[in-house]
Computed example of a mutant assay.
Amino acid sequence: MTDFAIPGFDLAAFVAATLAEDLGEGLPGGGHDVTSESVIAADARFAGVMDSRDPIVVAGLPIAAAFFRHLDAAMTIEILVEEGSSVQPGTDLMRLSGNARAMLTAERSALNTVQHLSGIATMTRSYVDAMDPAATLLDTRKTIPGLRHLEKYATRMGGASNHRMGLWDAAMIKDNHVMVAGNVGEAVRRARDAGVSRIICEVDRIDQIEPALAAGANHLLLDNMPPAQLREAVALVAGRVPTEASGGVNLETIAAISATGVDFVSVGRLTQSAPAADIGLDFTPL
């Protein structure tokens, strides 16, 4: 189908399931594109051009290509820009030619994916451009169920780094864990004693920092601290572990937050609130 791959993500299964949903496979009367089959001749051929209507950062074109090739393995597809590229309105992103019915059936799934992922990449790039370059932008687990690998791929295309991919690859001790354990130090100790090697501990007060570090935390998430408090926290940590600012971060605040000396700034809205990019796909008969 394509040599494009994202670790942990099954592209072929995603394409098949998405098209099956749109075609209504397994439902009474489902399993086909009623409009294309009734209006377009089976041997009709189209040429198509996908283009940007806004300035965007591109993400997801190889996935779009996989939708079209799933329905027409012989379709000719030319991807014109690299993933992660910044393009201006009117830029051609992809050219394709092949079976008209296949193009029309795959069109919406392909466009939905590219518009969503490019929207995330575009918003991410705006945050990267606004922040102090000494700090690194991180995404979060605030993703749409089933789309985490794709959405975190899009943040990478926008210039961010991925935080935890899920609940499995690091312990993140937050206020509810602390409440049950009794205090920050005890929560961190329990994770350490369980053999967890990567322990991220959220602190929202300066007096929680030393107990967390003493117990074995190796990454501190400084939650909802204003810039002055962040600078105080960074000075107290003094480089012993990486520090991350989180909470209250938007395009208006990220410059000041990222300039406090923190190593990372995490932003949930990258995947939670990014608007879809305006991308079109126009066909002409061959």
Rank of each mutant, 00 (worst) to 15 (best):
Asp3Pro: 01
Gly8Leu: 08
Val15Cys: 12
Ala20Lys: 04
Gly24Pro: 04
Val34Lys: 12
Thr35Val: 13
Ile40Thr: 14
Asp43Met: 03
Phe46Arg: 00
Gly48Asn: 03
Arg53Glu: 14
Pro62Asn: 04
Ile63Glu: 04
Arg69Gly: 00
Arg69Gln: 06
Leu80Val: 00
Glu83Thr: 09
Ser85Arg: 07
Met94Asp: 07
Arg95Ser: 03
Thr105Arg: 02
Ala106Val: 04
Gln115Asn: 00
Ala130Ser: 10
Pro133Arg: 02
Leu137Asn: 03
Leu138Cys: 08
Gly146Glu: 07
Leu147Ala: 11
Leu150Ser: 05
Gly158Glu: 08
Ala160Gln: 12
Ser161Met: 15
Ser161Arg: 15
Ser161Val: 14
Met165Tyr: 15
Asn176Asp: 11
His177Arg: 04
His177Glu: 05
Met179Asn: 12
Met179Pro: 00
Asn183Arg: 08
Ala187Ser: 04
Ala191His: 01
Ser197Cys: 09
Arg198Lys: 10
Asp207Trp: 01
Ala215Ile: 02
Ala217Ile: 05
Asn218Ser: 12
Leu220Ile: 08
Pro226Asp: 15
Ala228Gln: 07
Leu230Ile: 07
Ala233Trp: 14
Ala238Glu: 02
Thr243Asp: 13
Ser246Cys: 12
Asn250His: 09
Leu251Phe: 03
Glu252Leu: 15
Gly261Glu: 04
Phe264Asp: 06
Gln272Leu: 15
Ala274Ile: 07
Ala276Gln: 12
Ile279Gln: 03
Gly280Leu: 06
Thr284Tyr: 10
Thr284Lys: 06
Leu286Tyr: 09
